[in-house]
């Protein structure tokens, strides 16, 4: 592994501006308090590093929760010898305990340029807030968190983005790291148009140990690109959850414009559109078909899928849709 200077993931200087406001919003104590008592439920993707997650079916010599007995062998710790069994059955058995493993929640934030538009929707802020909420829930429950900002080119000033193949995307393991997560997220600068599938293929090539993959994106791409991303994660054994952040202006374009030259911020392509009743109805149908395709893809790939409209209550999503999807539960 070649380390890159981690300065790339932090905003330098104290120039204030939007990132300072976003950081303050992410660290709002009233907001963070709503995530207390929640934990992430992981179905698979356990690593081999010791941790606090209990993994039944893989008994080990030490631990807390008794799971099984096995025959004593020289070298076994005599403290775990079951003396009651020895007295009753005259058999040397040692206790085996439920394995406790570390779970790394990979928060994969797709920060391509589309996340910054429409400007009034605050998709970026909502995506960062969702990433922050998931990181808080994981850290509060003792799980490790790796935050990776996926996307195209690095930001012009070299900060605000950890390229998807950068090993410097840090792992946070303690609650005191929550301000650092907020600093990292507040420095995210949406830019570039690199495909989500390619980005995740490169990411998983560097992170061989599986974990919990929480993909936050606006998924404004063809469904086969999303499927490519899912396949990259599945091939490594990740437990995948798709979290779709959609702008209100994308649901209802009349909030953004009535007529004009539409410009694709990622490709630069343009298209003149005048919003009439017919074009609006056509757009709504195309959007509904896209959302249905994403939901069907998630069902086919056995991943969960949840949608959040920018500006909606993130804590409500955690305790509502994500709880029903089995990702979040009460501790």
């Amino acid at each position: 592994m070649r380390l890159r200077p981690a300065a790339r993931v932090f905003r330098g200087g104290a120039d204030g501006g939007p990132e300072v406001a976003l950081r303050a919003r992410l660290l709002d104590p009233a907001r963070l308090a709503r995530y207390d008592g929640l934990a992430l439920h992981v179905r698979r993707g356990m690593g081999d590093r010791p941790g606090e997650r209990r993994v039944p079916g893989r008994p080990q010599p030490s631990g807390i929760e008794l799971e099984a007995h096995s025959a004593y062998a020289p070298g076994d710790d005599l403290r775990h010898l079951d003396w009651n069994v020895l007295a009753r059955l005259d058999a040397l058995l040692v206790r085996r305990f439920t394995a406790e493993r570390d779970v790394v929640a990979h928060i994969l934030l797709d920060a391509s340029a589309s996340l910054a538009v429409p400007a009034g929707d605050d998709k970026l802020g909502t995506a960062c807030e969702l990433a922050m909420a998931l990181a808080c829930v994981a850290l509060n429950a003792g799980d490790a968190v790796r935050v990776a900002v996926l996307g195209g080119d690095a930001a012009p000033n070299g900060v605000g983005r950890a390229p998807d193949d950068a090993p410097a995307a840090p792992v946070f393991r303690q609650r005191v790291s929550i301000p650092r997560v907020a600093t990292l997220l507040a420095g995210v600068c949406p830019q570039g148009s690199d495909g989500l599938g390619a980005a995740l293929e490169r990411y998983t090539a560097r992170r061989r140990a599986p974990g919990l993959a929480l993909v936050i994106s606006d998924f404004l791409m063809e469904p086969h690109e999303v499927e490519r991303a899912i396949q990259a994660l599945r091939a490594r054994g990740y437990d995948i959850h798709l979290l779709h952040v959609l702008g209100a202006g994308e649901l209802d374009p009349t909030r953004v414009f009535s007529r004009g030259m539409l410009v694709d911020v990622e490709s630069g392509a343009t298209r003149p559109i005048a919003l009439t009743a017919a074009t609006l109805a056509r757009y709504q149908a195309v959007l509904a078909a896209h959302l249905d395709a994403l939901r069907a893809l998630a069902a086919r790939c056995e991943t969960s899928y949840a949608r959040l409209v920018a500006g909606d209550d993130v804590a409500g999503l955690l305790t509502g849709a994500l709880a029903r999807a089995g990702l979040v539960r009460r501790r």
Partner: peptide, 20 residues
């Protein structure tokens, strides 16, 4: 004419273009 930045045009490709 007004330029409206959007995240993607692939949804709008299915909507008839207009004469502005």
């Amino acid at each position: 004419r007004r330029a409206v930045p959007l995240g993607t045009l692939f949804l709008w490709q299915h909507v008839p273009a207009a004469v502005l």
